[in-house]
């Protein structure tokens, strides 16, 4: 652990955050663990006619209806087949519960606040706006996702207008 020494002066106030990592296409992403309620195996999703196209449909979560978002579509990635490792992560953001479908869920990692860097301004706009920051850990790039944005800002303002 060499990098933390660089920030020794700040380490007293350096928060340790936990992130759940998941994979989409070839990348690894992270979501703050406090926002994740549970991870489900893929179950049948009932499509909703007339819904926005990034909404895959709804599932029955022990009697509650939960909307599932197509994360690939949202990130501008090509659609892929459902496999054995496909998971639905149930997350709670801004008082609404939604499911996001991901290729697989890996682990929970501990990150120090100081290890998180702001995202380099590359890539297409569609996916860039959901990125909170990046973190280089064990020579692997971890992309931290801003969940609130995933559910689309326009959507929020639309909702607020109702």
């Amino acid at each position: 652990m060499s990098s933390p020494q660089k920030f020794q002066a700040e380490s007293a106030t350096d928060l340790v955050l936990q992130y759940v990592t998941f994979r989409l296409a070839e990348e690894t992403y992270g979501i703050n663990v406090m926002m994740v309620q549970e991870v489900l195996r893929y179950s049948e999703i009932a499509p909703v006619p007339g819904a926005p196209d990034y909404v895959l449909g709804i599932i029955n979560l022990r009697g509650n209806v939960v909307t599932v978002i197509d994360t690939r579509q949202r990130f501008g990635l090509p659609a892929s087949e459902v496999t054995d490792s496909t998971r639905i992560m149930i997350i709670e953001a801004d008082q609404q519960v939604v499911g996001i479908m991901v290729d697989s869920v890996a682990e929970v990692v501990y990150l120090k606040q100081s290890e998180i860097e702001t995202a380099p301004n590359v890539g297409n706009d569609e996916s860039a706006k959901f990125i909170q920051g990046v973190c280089n850990k064990n020579n692997e790039l971890l992309i931290l996702v801003e969940l609130d944005k995933l559910m689309s800002e326009e959507e929020w303002s639309e909702l607020a207008a109702i």
Partner: peptide, 13 residues
């Protein structure tokens, strides 16, 4: 069961 806030107001449902 109400549809979530995201799908609320989907026409016809």
């Amino acid at each position: 069961k109400p549809l979530g806030t995201m799908l609320h107001g989907t026409p016809g449902l």
